[in-house]
Amino acid sequence: MRTTRMLAAALLTGAALLGTAAPALADTPSPSATKDKDKGAPTVAGTTFRTATPVEQGQKATADASSGDYLYWVFPADAGQRPAVDATVTLPSTGRQQATTWRIDVYDGLRRRQPCMYGAQSRAAAADATTVALSCTLRPVRAWADSWSTDPLPGSYYVRLTAVGLPATERGLPVKAELRATTKETGGSQAVDGSLSTPLGAGGPKVEPEDGWSSGWWTDRWIWTGAGGVLAALAGVGGYALTRGRGRPAHVPRNA
Score class of each variant (00 low, 15 high):
Gly95Val: 09
Val85Tyr: 02
Ala129Lys: 06
Trp144Pro: 00
Trp148Tyr: 07
Leu71Asn: 12
Ser135Ile: 06
Leu71His: 13
Arg171Pro: 00
Arg111Asp: 02
Pro76Gln: 15
Arg96Val: 13
Gly109Thr: 07
Ser135His: 11
Val132Arg: 02
Trp102Asp: 01
Thr130Pro: 00
Asp108Ser: 02
Ser156His: 09
Ala145Val: 07
Asp151Cys: 09
Ala61Gln: 04
Ala125Met: 12
Asp69Phe: 13
Pro83Ile: 05
Gln121Pro: 02
Tyr107Ala: 08
Cys136Asn: 10
Ala65His: 06
Thr51Leu: 10
Thr62Gly: 05
Ser122Thr: 15
Ala79Ile: 01
Trp148Phe: 07
Ser149Glu: 08
Arg160Pro: 04
Val85Gln: 01
Lys60Gln: 08
Val74Phe: 06
Asp108Glu: 09
Thr94Trp: 15
Asp108Pro: 01
Leu173Pro: 02
Leu161Glu: 11
Val175Phe: 04
Gly155Asp: 03
Arg96Phe: 13
Leu173Ile: 13
Leu166Ser: 06
Ala79His: 01
Ala79Asn: 01
Val55Gln: 14
Ala127Ile: 13
Ala163Leu: 02
Ala52Gly: 04
Trp102Glu: 04
Arg103Gly: 01
Ile104Gln: 04
Val175Asn: 02
Gln59Thr: 13
Asp69Asn: 13
Gln59His: 15
Gln57His: 03
Tyr157Cys: 04
Thr90Val: 09
Pro152Glu: 04
Met117Lys: 14
Gln57Ala: 03
Pro115Ser: 14
Pro174Asn: 02
Pro83Trp: 03
Trp73His: 08
Tyr72Thr: 05
Ala126Arg: 13
Arg139Ser: 05
Thr150Gly: 00
Gly58Leu: 14
Trp148Ile: 05
Thr90Asp: 10
Leu166Cys: 06
Arg82His: 12
Ala168Trp: 14
Ser156Ala: 15
Thr100Asn: 06
Pro167Gly: 11
Ser67Asn: 12
Val89Gln: 01
Val141Tyr: 01
Gly68Ile: 07
Ala45Tyr: 06
Trp144Arg: 05
Val44Glu: 06
Phe75Leu: 09
Arg123Val: 10
Asp78Pro: 01
Val164Ile: 11
Gly68Trp: 12
Gly119His: 12
Ser66Thr: 14
Thr150Val: 09
Phe75Ala: 10
Ser93Tyr: 15
Val175Glu: 00
Gly68Phe: 11
Thr101Tyr: 10
Arg112Thr: 02
Pro152Thr: 10
Val55His: 03
Ser149Pro: 04
Thr48Cys: 15
Cys136Arg: 03
Tyr70Thr: 08
Gly172Ala: 14
Cys116Ala: 12
Thr150Phe: 04
Asp151Pro: 00
Lys60Leu: 13
Val106Phe: 05
Arg103Lys: 15
Ala127Gly: 05
Thr130Leu: 11
Ser147Lys: 15
Pro115Ile: 15
Arg103His: 15
Tyr70Ser: 14
Ser149Tyr: 08
Gln114Trp: 04
Ala124Tyr: 14
Trp148Pro: 00
Leu138Ser: 00
Thr88Met: 13
Leu138His: 05
Pro83Lys: 03
Ala61His: 05
Ala61Asn: 07
Ser156Asp: 09
Leu71Gln: 12
Gly68Asp: 14
Arg112Leu: 01
Gly68Gln: 10
Thr88Phe: 06
Gln121Gly: 10
Cys136Asp: 05
Thr137Val: 14
Gly46Asp: 09
Pro54Gln: 11
Ala125Val: 07
Val89Thr: 12
